[in-house]
Design a protein around this nucleic acid. Structure first.
Lengths: 150, 150
DNA sequence: GTTGCTGCAAACCCTTTGCATAGGA
DNA sequence: TCCTATGCAAAGGGTTTGCAGCAAC
C-alpha cells in the first residue's frame, strides 16, 4: 500500500516504456518534484520551485512532462474556472471533488460516493461514455465566513 | 412565465441601477445579443457576431459586459477545462450540468436534482457556504461512439 | 461636474510551438 | 542509427488593462 518514492519511480519507468515514452532524467526529476508535493499547483509554480532548488530543467519540459504525467494517470489536471491548469498527484488517493473558497482561494476536497454513482447513472441515461469528471463547488469556507462576522 | 425581450431589458435596467451600474446603450446591445442566443459561446464569438451584423461595439466592452451580466446573473460562465470561458444565458432555465464530448467538442446538458441535493449536503457537512457550482463530465457522446464503430 | 464607461491598442499571462541539439532505444 | 525529448526563444490565443475621450447621473 505504502510505496516508497523509489518504488514509485520504478513503476513510472515501466509505465513510460509500456506507453512508448522514453525514460529521461528530466521526466524523473519532474516526477520526484510532483510526488513530494501535496495539493494543487500550476505548471509555472512547479517550474519556479525546481529552478529555485537548483534543478536544471526547461520551462517547456515541465509543461510537456506534466501532460505526460496526466496521460499516464500520475497527476490530475483541473482548472477551477480560472483559465489556468492546476495539477495534483493522484498517488494513493481516491478521486475527489473540490470546494473552492472565493474569498481566500483555498481549495478543499471531498469524496462523495453517492454523487459518483449518480454521475454514472446520468451517463447511462444519456448513452454517454464517461472518461473523467470534474465537480467544483464555489463559495465561502468556514474560516472566511467567521472572519466576515468579526 | 414567458417574458418578451423588451420586458427582460426593463428588468435588466432596474437590476443595473440597483447594483450601482450605469445603464448604457452598449450594455443593452450586448444583452440583446445574449438573450437571443442559445447554447454556449465565448466572448470572441459574440463580439465577431455583433461586428458582423453591423453593431458598433468594442471587443473590450463585450468582455467587460459579459462579466457584468455574469455578476447580475443574466449569464452563466464556465470553462470546460479549455482555458477559455464560455457563456450562456440563464433566462427561463434551471441550473444544469454538462456532458462534454472530447471527440466532437459538443456540450450536452443534464439536470439532476439528486446530485444538487447531495452537493448541498456536502456543503453543510463542511461548513461551506455555496455560491455556485459546476459539474462537467468528460467523455464520448453517443454519436461519436457510433462513428467509432464504423 | 463627477463618476463611471467605452474604444483602442498594447500589455499580460499561461501555454504551445519551431527548430537545432542532445540523448534514449 | 533512428526517433523522441530537451532547451531556448518566440509565437499564440484569450483576456485584461491604461488612458483619453465621452456619456450617464
Amino acid at each position: 500500500m505504502e510505496n516508497s518514492i523509489e518504488e514509485m519511480i520504478q513503476d513510472f519507468r515501466s509505465t513510460l516504456k509500456k506507453k512508448g515514452f522514453n525514460i529521461t532524467k528530466e521526466r524523473e526529476l519532474i516526477l520526484r518534484e510532483v510526488l513530494q508535493r501535496k495539493g494543487h499547483y500550476d505548471a509555472e509554480t512547479l517550474y519556479i520551485a525546481m529552478k529555485t532548488s537548483g534543478v536544471k530543467v526547461a520551462r517547456s519540459t515541465v509543461y510537456r512532462t506534466l501532460d505526460v504525467l496526466y496521460d499516464i494517470g500520475v497527476v490530475d489536471k483541473s482548472s477551477f474556472g480560472q483559465n489556468q491548469f492546476y495539477y495534483e498527484r493522484m498517488i494513493d488517493r481516491a478521486h475527489h471533488d473540490h470546494l473552492v473558497c472565493q474569498v481566500c482561494d483555498k481549495i478543499f476536497e471531498f469524496v462523495n460516493e453517492d454523487i459518483e454513482k449518480l454521475q454514472v447513472q446520468v451517463c447511462k441515461e444519456n448513452g454517454f461514455k464517461m472518461k473523467s469528471h470534474s465537480l467544483q463547488i464555489f463559495g465561502v469556507c468556514t474560516q472566511c465566513q467567521e472572519k466576515d462576522m468579526e
